[in-house]
Structures are given as structure tokens and as C-alpha cells.
Design a protein around this nucleic acid. Structure first.
Lengths: 268, 268
DNA sequence: GTAATAATCCCGATTATCGGGATTTCATCA
DNA sequence: TGATGAAATCCCGATAATCGGGATTATTAC
């Protein structure tokens, strides 16, 4: 059946085995978990070690390595979503007593990649770096609602149980109605779906009409916020997300060698 | 000649192409840079994209992806060096007006993975995540001096130009003398080698007699520090590094299911 | 709607990969 | 210092995945 890039995928699968629940593995454990032969396993481990993606510590086993810190640092400094988005995070945090997040979306997860906090006692179940599941919360819906029809339908089917549980909707048709409203308004809102007592207001960042790549989200304490204020936040979030989207889309229209943050670092 | 894991290494080599100088690549550039065929290249890119290690943004090209943030987050929370070392960073920063760093070593680089700052106006050329070259500075010498003889000799040969340039020593014998002194004292010190006007004092973290895996470093403003204070810092740094080393080595001797920070997260 | 670019598919020859077992290196303890 | 056990690497032939050219299909731009 001649798999595509089977060996490379096996290599990566080792990297993705590490988790909060099990951050350190010895070779025996890895062998049983992966069912690779001893020889192959060590080959993979050696390759990963050579580039610092994993390290082995005597007595502890194999663990994720410092190269990830280096690559994350690079990512932070080159991702246009983060580079252009951070100023908006600051503005939002200045304007309201809140937490403002920039989240990226990949696989079936949402990840906070940058944040700015002005709320006196911020509460967040998901700090920068810890993925949160798609399927609940304002961010999820802001993104799902803006997917192309086919993909959206597939996602709705997959997350229907979550939608029922949070009482967002009971049928796929109802979900589609909710999503249509989100698209019309430009933002989504969720009350305590991720963290009890916290309201989330999110808008998608789009690189093309139906192509979300990230979301901007502001969270407020439910008790301390009024309806009028939430409306003001929603307007600001939408506007900021739109502007970020615009910037991302216009980048090329201007000039590839312009002074844009992404490209100013390019080789002379 | 049947290379080992050629395809997996090619895949990784793409990941490592991204740099501060060139954070975004389009497929044409990648093809010329790697000289892989179009088909193979796209295969690699697809695999990397599927797991979020890279992302492609229209108009921008391929860039490092958010999964790196997730993995770095995990790494931060599981690396015993960081987990056990951070409290010592705090103590050092409380005791002196300084910056205290925990650095890890891999490939031919040193990387700051955690830091604590108490100096009023800290200066650092190398923040968390940006690798600094081996070959100059207190951290480098603290690590190199504690390598096994063979490996040490190889490193000295490689970095001899740096040692001459910083006037550390002119011959390999002189370097060995310096290193012997570092081993005897337990720490190394450098004046303005990395950042002008900043003194660095570093001690290695060892998981076995001649097996450094990291280093603890404190930096002070040269002008604002007296010889006596530097001596006090050196003593503290040595003691802290020793204690961290001890903890790392004893971990297994105690109990694998103890309440150690690394393992308390393990599955029940 | 059309052109241009980007990404994927198809498939046979080639070539890297796999794994069993032996060997070496490393760490620990006597 | 030498012995013991565990961890990691080496060797090598059969096997099965990988490669790449060219066609095809998606996507974006105008």
C-alpha cells in the first residue's frame, strides 16, 4: 500500500508523543508505544537528538529539547499574524479592563500565541502554548463559522455533540443559523463556555473571504461587564480583526520588499 | 551509499531553514535552496503542515507554525533542568542586583531557556530563545571545561580562533590550563565578552562527573560591581549549580513516582 | 470568465529503510 | 580498577517505501 513519507511521519510521531501527562519517555516505553523495532526507534531518536528537538537526560529518559524554544522564538518574531496583531492587542487591553488574545488554529486545536492583559485579576484556563479544543467557546465559532461550506459542514458534524452539550443548538441546521448570524455580525460571543463566569468575544482573522487562519478574542468578567460595554468590545474586536485581515491581505499588493515587519529582516 | 534516514532528515532540514534573516519562504525559493524535486518538496511541506510545524500564508509563503509554541510550552513544563533550576534563579535574583540565566547546550549553540531579572536596567544581547554561539563568554567555558577529554580537545581546536581573539589564550595548552582552573574553582568568569560592560559568572550543571547539560549564569554591570561582590556571586552560582546537579542525579535514587516536579504529572 | 500560479496525483524504477542479532559504549557498583 | 548489566549503535541483505517527470487539478488574480 506504499504509504507516503512513512518514515518521516514515524519520526514526527515520536516528537508528538510527548505531552503534559507524559513528558518523559525511556526507550522501552517508546518501543511499546510506537511498536517500532529497537533499531529503527534509536535511529529516529538519534536524528531528533542531533538537531536538538529532543534530549535524553540520564535517569529521566527522552524529553523535548531546547531547539523548540529556538524555533518558537523565531516563529514569534516572524509570524505576520502576531507581528501585526500585537498592537491591536495592546489597544484593546488599554481600552477595556480585559484579557485580549490572539489565537491560531491548526489541526483540531486552537492555540493562544500572544496576549495582553489589563484586567486586575485575569483568569484563563488556557495560557499561551496550551491548546484548547475546537468545539466550544467564542473563538471556535468565530473560526468555524467562516470556513468554506464543505469544510464547515464536516466540522459541524464532528462537533455536534459539543454544540448540544453547551446548548448552542440541537441540529445542524440550527448551528448553520447561528453561524450565519456570526458571519453577519462579524463576531461570536460565549458566556462561560471555557471558563465559568468569563465572557468571550471573538472575531476571525481572514486571509481571504472564507479563509480564517486565526482569531482575535477579548474576555471579560461576566459580573463586571454591562451589555453596553460588551457591545462596545464586540465592535472594537471586529474592527481590529478586520484591520489585521486587511493588512495581511494587502501585504503583497504594496511591495514585497517594503518595510513590512515580516520582510524587513530579509537578506539584503 | 544508502544514507540513514535521508528522507526524515530532508524533512527536518526544511524546518531548520527558517531563520531570523529569512523567516518566510515560497516554494520556488525552497526548491532552489534544497534542490529537492517539486514533488518531494511538496510532500515534505504537506507533512509538516499537517502537524502544524509550518503554516503557509497566502502572499507570505511558508513559515514556522504554532505547533512549535505548543511544544515549547510543553518543554518548559517538563524539562527537569528548568523545573528545578527556576527557584535558584529566583534566589539569585533576590540576593543580587543582576540577571540570572539558565542555559541549555546543544549542537554548537547555547540557548537561554529561563531567566530571572532584578537589575534595574538589564542588558542582554541574547534573550530567551535566541541561540548564542559557543566559543565566547562565561557560559561557554563553564560547559566546555567540563567535557570529557576527547570531546573537549575537539572543541578547543574548533574554537581556538575565538579564544585567541578574546585573548583568553594563544595555544591549546593555555586553554587547557584555563579550563583546569575553571574545573578547580567550579565557575568561569568573563568580562564584556558577550555584552560590553557586562560581567558573566557561570557554573555548569552536570548529570554525571564530566557530563554538562546546561549552565547557570549571573550577569552584573561591570561598573556597578566590586570584586568582593563578584566573589560572593561566584560562590552562590557554584552552590546553586551544584545543588541543581545533585537533584538531577539523585532523582532516580529516590523514587520514580515521588513528588518530583517532573514526574508528578505522569499518568496515574 | 480566463490566465497564471500553486499544489496534488499517478506510477514504475530506483534506492533508502527495516529489523534481527552481534557489538560497542556507557554507567554503576564491588 | 575491573566486572556486570543496561543503553545505544553497527552490520547487511531482503523488502517495501521513496523519488521524480509530467499531467492534472485546485486556487488566486485580474
Amino acid at each position: 500500500m506504499t504509504d507516503t513519507l512513512a518514515s518521516a511521519e514515524r519520526l514526527i510521531s515520536i516528537l508528538l508523543l510527548f505531552s503534559e501527562e507524559k513528558p518523559a519517555w525511556n526507550s522501552e516505553e517508546l518501543m511499546t508505544a510506537t511498536s517500532y523495532s529497537r533499531t529503527s526507534l534509536y535511529r529516529y531518536l538519534k536524528t531528533l537528538k542531533e538537531v536538538g528537538l529532543i534530549v535524553s537526560l540520564p535517569q529521566h529518559g527522552y524529553m523535548l529539547g531546547p531547539r523548540l524554544t529556538e524555533l518558537d522564538y523565531l516563529m514569534q518574531r516572524s509570524d505576520p499574524v502576531i507581528l501585526h496583531g500585537s498592537r491591536y492587542l495592546q489597544r484593546l487591553a488599554e481600552s477595556f479592563s480585559c484579557s485580549a488574545f490572539l489565537t491560531r488554529w491548526y489541526e483540531q486545536k486552537i492555540l493562544c500565541v500572544a496576549s495582553e492583559v489589563s484586567a486586575p485579576r485575569p483568569r484563563s484556563s488556557y495560557p499561551r502554548g496550551r491548546p484548547m479544543p475546537l468545539g466550544r467557546g467564542a473563538i471556535s465559532r468565530a473560526i468555524l463559522a467562516h470556513l468554506p461550506k464543505r469544510q464547515r459542514a464536516a466540522m459541524i458534524a464532528q462537533y455536534m455533540p459539543d454544540f448540544r452539550q453547551t446548548k448552542l443548538a440541537q441540529t445542524t441546521e440550527e448551528v448553520e443559523m447561528v453561524f450565519r448570524q456570526i458571519r453577519r455580525r462579524g463576531y461570536s460571543i460565549a458566556y462561560g463556555e471555557v471558563t465559568a463566569g468569563v465572557v468571550g468575544i471573538a472575531a476571525p482573522i481572514l486571509v481571504a473571504p472564507m479563509t480564517p487562519v486565526a482569531a482575535l478574542c477579548v474576555t471579560l468578567e461576566e459580573k463586571e461587564s454591562q451589555a453596553a460595554q460588551r457591545q462596545a468590545v464586540a465592535t472594537s474586536v471586529c474592527q481590529a480583526a478586520d484591520e489585521i485581515s486587511q493588512i495581511l491581505q494587502n501585504q503583497s499588493a504594496v511591495d514585497h520588499r517594503s518595510d513590512s515587519p515580516v520582510l524587513q529582516l530579509e537578506q539584503a
